[in-house]
Write a protein that binds this DNA or RNA. Structure first.
Length: 176
DNA sequence: ACCCCGATCGTA
DNA sequence: ACGATCGGGGTT
């Protein structure tokens, strides 16, 4: 069944862990344009990372609210999509309360060429233009629980060595 | 207007 | 291990 709002209105780290084993569904029939009508992509989420609040120096919203990161300040259950290195798009799902920047980065799917945050956005036709700010309790982009409970390992987050003490937090979750 | 850097990826 | 590549945030 589709995850409802209350799943996302919880602490970011819990949401990140609980998203492992769930299924990301991308329905191209939604309001987004330029995509073939009726095309549906779906795959199990295998890797995530949590980014939470003003004390997390790796969180995009920890210093200030900007045009890029404003979706992070919404309450849980919205897609935050941003462009990284000028080329790749990254998909996050917001969590918790409004006005606290927090989201879960989706880093991997059990799907061809979707073993990385940029690669999975390319595979599922997710861009900042067609998905940023989308309500993921809607019909275009959402997550389903299909009853699978994988073993999970927690490790340090990737690519945030600049984040001082926060670099050591075990906020990356991966299906074993 | 300019500078700097990045939640990545493909190649070597 | 390294470079491509450009959006965006901060500063001048």
């Amino acid at each position: 069944m589709k995850l409802k709002r209350n799943f996302y209105l919880r602490p970011t780290v819990k949401v990140a862990k609980d998203l492992i084993g769930k299924f990301l569904v991308r329905n191209c029939r939604g309001p987004s344009t330029g995509l073939r009508a009726g095309k549906i992509y779906q795959a199990m989420i295998t890797e995530t990372e949590a980014y939470h609040g003003f004390s997390d120096k790796a969180c995009h919203g920890h210093k200030s609210r900007t045009k890029r990161n404003e979706v992070m300040f919404l309450h849980g259950g919205f897609a935050y999509v941003y462009i990284i290195y000028g080329i790749y798009h990254c998909l996050n799902l917001t969590t918790g309360d409004k006005d606290v920047p927090s989201a879960v980065l989706i880093r991997g799917l059990d799907f061809p060429n979707a073993d990385g945050p940029g690669k999975l956005c390319k595979a599922f036709k997710i861009t900042k233009e067609n998905c940023n700010g989308l309500d993921v309790t809607g019909d275009t982009l959402y997550v389903e629980d299909r009853g699978i409970k994988p073993k999970i390992e927690a490790t340090k987050r990737i690519g945030i060595d600049y984040a001082e003490e926060c670099r050591d937090w075990l906020w990356r979750f991966k299906k074993i």
